[in-house]
């Protein structure tokens, strides 16, 4: 299948484990899965804690504060849904809570450096879908 022929924006298909993450975003909160037994945070959501193998988890509310680990600027639209947005920058962020995110950068590319302090913002992109993005802290 050639997805270049599908102009609709790709939407996430939440799993049993990830529903809470997407629901929190809709409420403009950033939530990460936390092991209910040993307390370790994990992202992306999955059934098991890799430290103690517990399958019980709760949701931890993140401050959304972090620092830049890396970035890229997408120039070629591999997917037509993103064509009108190119060039767009994406940042990889180390949150102070210890997990990572990858999200659009709402700032100038020239201002990006390693370890730049950033914070999350929430963007309602379409019906029932809210995505994270980052701005300078």
């Amino acid at each position: 299948m050639n997805i270049d022929s599908l102009p609709a924006r790709p939407r996430p298909t939440p799993t049993e484990e990830s529903q809470g993450y997407w629901q929190a975003l809709r409420e403009h909160r950033l939530a990460f899965q936390q092991c209910a037994d040993c307390g370790k945070l994990r992202h992306y959501p999955r059934p098991m804690c890799d430290a103690c193998w517990s399958m019980k988890s709760i949701w931890f509310e993140s401050s959304g504060q972090g620092t830049v680990v890396s970035w890229t600027v997408a120039h070629h639209p591999f997917h037509l849904a993103f064509k009108s947005q190119t060039p767009y920058a994406l940042v990889t962020v180390e949150l102070e809570d210890g997990v990572r995110m990858h999200a659009p950068w709402r700032g100038t590319v020239e201002s990006l450096t390693l370890d730049l302090p950033v914070r999350v913002v929430f963007e309602g992109v379409e019906d029932g879908l809210t995505l994270p993005a980052f701005v300078a802290a």
Partner: peptide, 13 residues
């Protein structure tokens, strides 16, 4: 699930 919706999915990206 987590990167394609923000526009990161091709190997180059």
């Amino acid at each position: 699930e987590f990167e394609l919706p923000i526009g990161a999915f091709a190997p180059a990206q």
